Simulated scan of single mutants.
Amino acid sequence: MLYSQTQSKLAQIATLLNDAGMWSATTPSDAAMASTAPFACDLMPLEQWLQFIFIPRMQSLIDAGQPLPSRIAIAPMAQHVWQDNPDLLPLICVLNELDMLLNEPR
């Protein structure tokens, strides 16, 4: 159940990124992909981190039946980064829903 709910949220995030024109056809550089900074914020924008790092890693965990993170806080970062763009509020809301889903006691 948790996997399917998480997968649904990931699909919503991808759709909202695409609808906002933030889905990229260009993969970030190898250096950016290897960033160890939270959200790779030193080398890529948050939307690229979501698309190229977060969503694929979460999908890999789901596909492998591995445990999903139980402490996650993406929405506060999204709120900080996109606070001046009210059009992204639906995306921030879905990220918050994902945070709450994964942070629920299991």
Score class of each variant (00 low, 15 high):
A75P: 09
I72G: 00
P76S: 01
T27I: 03
L98I: 06
M58N: 03
P69E: 11
L16M: 06
Q59T: 15
D84L: 07
M100P: 00
C93D: 15
D63E: 15
A14K: 14
P69I: 11
I55M: 03
M100D: 14
A11F: 05
C41K: 14
E97C: 08
P86N: 04
A32R: 03
A32T: 06
D87N: 11
Q83C: 11
A73P: 04
M58H: 04
L88F: 02
Q83R: 14
S70Y: 07
R57Y: 10
T26N: 10
L95P: 02
G21D: 02
S24F: 00
D42E: 11
L68D: 09
P28Q: 08
R71G: 05
S8E: 13
A73C: 05
L91S: 06
A11W: 03
W82L: 08
P86W: 04
L68A: 09
D42I: 05
Q7M: 07
A40E: 07
T15Y: 07
V81A: 06
Q48D: 15
Q12L: 13
A11K: 12
D63C: 04
L88Q: 01
P28K: 07
L16K: 04
A25W: 03
N103A: 01
P67F: 02
R71K: 13
C41F: 12
R57D: 15
M22H: 04
L16H: 03
R71F: 10
I74D: 05
D30F: 04
L68N: 09
M33D: 00
Q48G: 04
L50M: 15
A40R: 12
N85D: 13
F52Y: 13
Q83N: 14
G21S: 03
L68T: 09
A20I: 03
S35N: 11
Q7G: 14
A37N: 10
A14R: 12
H80E: 15
W23V: 00
F52D: 01
A64I: 05
I62A: 11
N18H: 13
C93R: 13
D84W: 04
Q79V: 06
M58R: 02
I72Y: 08
A20C: 02
L95D: 03
L46G: 09
K9N: 09
M33G: 01
W23E: 00
Q48F: 04
K9Q: 13
S8D: 13
I92S: 08
V94E: 12
A75D: 10
N85L: 09
S35Q: 10
L91D: 07
L10A: 08
S24K: 05
L43Y: 03
I13N: 00
V81E: 13
L98Q: 05
Q83W: 09
C41L: 11
M100V: 15
Q7V: 00
D87P: 00
L102I: 09
A25D: 15
Q79I: 05
A11Q: 14
T26R: 11
D99R: 00
M100W: 04
L101D: 10
A75W: 09
G21K: 02
A34P: 08
S35Y: 09
A14H: 07
H80F: 13
P28M: 08
L102A: 08
S70P: 00
A31M: 06
V94W: 06
M58F: 05
I55E: 02
A40Y: 09
I92N: 08
A64H: 12
T15H: 10
I53T: 02
L46W: 08
L89S: 11
L91W: 07
L102M: 15
